[in-house]
């Protein structure tokens, strides 16, 4: 496994009586596309919130690029190169698509910023919509916009929370192409949460399986899909695991 860009070590998080994250540890290799899967409510989004500083862990550590970043504020994490999307899309609704992107980054002239924004929009296929109001876009296009906005930060690590959910296979393919392309060209690392197993198995080199706030298994997609404990965790959700082997590339 390559040098880790992100290390999560023994992280705990309670919400009142709910023990959402229970001593969770894992690593994400630099320049990999790593999947994070697990049943509903197992703590995936909470883990994203702990990594990005939205929540502070009760205990444990988050190490990013060799530095302890536990409990740093979200805007600091973003400036360090950690970008994320939200499970429930959060675009700036009354602003134009282009304006959504031009809010960042910080270290560029407005000319460079605009050029990069146009490039990113072209990559995700929203170039035609640049002047449209974000709130007027379709559900799928809003997801694409939020996905595109992430790259404005020139991120090193991108956390994607169910960006493939509820959009057409054609758009999913486009998003996968963009992810692979940014990884290959710019060395961006991705941690991808999704329930669409076909996408996860296709896209990721490494998959982390989470259950009850812990990492249950970790490995290449083919290993994971054969792992008994994983299949058990998904028992009620067997259909999700079905067809996994047929869709490998």
């Amino acid at each position: 496994m390559p040098e880790p860009l992100l290390v999560v070590r023994d992280v705990e998080k309670h919400f009142g009586g709910v023990h959402a994250i229970q001593g969770c540890s894992f690593e994400v290799g630099a320049k990999t596309i790593t999947g994070l899967v697990g049943p509903n409510g197992c703590g995936k989004t909470t883990m994203f919130n702990l990594i990005t500083g939205t929540f502070r862990p009760d205990s444990g550590a988050v190490i990013y690029a060799g530095r302890d970043v536990t409990g740093l504020r979200p805007h600091v994490m973003a400036q360090l190169g950690v970008a994320r999307t939200y499970q429930l899309t959060r675009v700036f609704k009354s602003m134009s698509v282009l304006q959504n992107l031009l809010t960042v980054p910080f270290d560029q002239s407005s000319g460079e910023r605009k050029q990069w924004a146009v490039e990113v929009l072209a990559a995700v296929g929203l170039a035609e919509e640049a002047d449209a109001t974000a709130g007027d876009l379709s559900f799928g296009d809003q997801k694409l916009l939020e996905f595109a906005r992430v790259f404005m930060l020139h991120p090193k690590l991108v956390l994607l929370d169910e960006i493939f959910a509820g959009i057409s296979p054609a758009l999913q393919e486009r998003q996968m192409r963009v992810i692979r392309d940014f990884r290959a060209r710019l060395g961006v690392t991705f941690l991808v949460v999704d329930h669409t197993m076909r996408v996860i198995m296709n896209l990721c080199q490494e998959v982390l399986v989470m259950n009850h706030g812990q990492i249950l298994a970790q490995g290449a997609p083919a290993e994971i899909s054969r792992n008994d404990r994983v299949i058990e965790a998904y028992l009620g959700n067997r259909s999700a695991m079905k067809g996994v082997d047929h869709h490998r590339d």
Partner: peptide, 11 residues
């Protein structure tokens, strides 16, 4: 529009 999202972009 969305303070949390703005913060997640480094603002």
């Amino acid at each position: 529009e969305d303070e949390e999202a703005a913060e997640s972009l480094g603002i």
